[in-house]
């Protein structure tokens, strides 16, 4: 079996791949933002024991953590188009769907990894030493102020190691975007495979590209973790 990578020199294929990489990174970044919003909000509601909201948050977390992100994506994609939410494009006046495949992927990534992030941030919050919290309380901080200025900053730092693997998992899961026809890197790959029939070579290249993206993400998270380190808390 010989591997033939000559197709890689075609500028058209290079454009497809680069554009795909861009879309994948954009998808992952937007997904991460949503993941952090959901994760922090959910963990805060659970940690502060907000009445009437604890059970809904728990149900949300268990629903999204215990079901495949791919099925969630298909469900969102079909349900939102079934409900038929549309916007009027101000430029052309045409109706465009409010939730494109791209939006659905971002939503599903944010929901699935966000549900996991809730648990991760919550255990980070629990790992904050009780003395630190008591100290803040005795200085006159209210329950909310303690959470905002003491528990959350330290808890988020404590949750960095599991959060790193959650971020890698989010980047890996973003490859599902191709299944709802979002032009991410996998989509570019399938297009190239259709034209060149070098299926194995294309897939191996995509595999390497994902490894590079995931490893870069881990490096970036490590730099951030090092920059925000508080001596004495976490490793």
């Amino acid at each position: 079996m010989t591997l033939d990578f000559s197709w890689l020199f075609d500028p058209l294929y290079q454009t497809w791949l680069l554009r795909g990489v861009g879309t994948t990174i954009l998808l992952s970044l937007l997904g991460m933002v949503l993941m952090f919003v959901i994760g922090i909000a959910g963990a805060a509601l659970l940690h502060l024991k907000v009445r009437f909201l604890q059970s809904p948050v728990t149900i949300f977390v268990e629903l999204f953590r215990n079901t495949p992100p791919l099925v969630q994506l298909f469900f969102l994609y079909f349900m939102l188009s079934e409900i038929g939410l549309t916007l009027t494009d101000p430029v052309t006046g045409g109706r465009i769907p409010l939730f494109t495949g791209f939006t659905c992927v971002v939503l599903s990534l944010g929901l699935y990894n966000g549900a996991i992030a809730v648990e991760i941030i919550r255990s980070g919050l629990l790992a904050v030493p009780a003395q630190t919290v008591e100290g803040a309380r005795s200085l006159g901080y209210s329950r909310l102020q303690t959470f905002r200025h003491v528990e959350l900053p330290i808890g988020l730092r404590m949750s960095i190691p599991p959060m790193t693997s959650n971020i890698v998992s989010l980047i890996k899961t973003s490859s599902q975007a191709v299944l709802v026809a979002v032009a991410d890197i996998m989509y570019g790959a399938t297009q190239i495979m259709l034209e060149t029939f070098r299926n194995l070579e294309v897939m191996l290249l995509i595999w390497v590209i994902y490894l590079v993206i995931a490893s870069l993400a881990v490096l970036v998270v490590r730099r951030i973790a090092a920059a925000f380190r508080i001596p004495g808390y976490g490793s």
């Binding site: 890698v168 890996k172 490859s175 599902q176 191709v178 897939m203 994902y210 995931a214």
Partner: peptide
């Protein structure tokens, strides 16, 4: 561990 499952399946 860092490879997407979908890509491994395709490969």
């Amino acid at each position: 561990r860092n490879s997407p499952w979908l890509v491994v399946l395709y490969a």
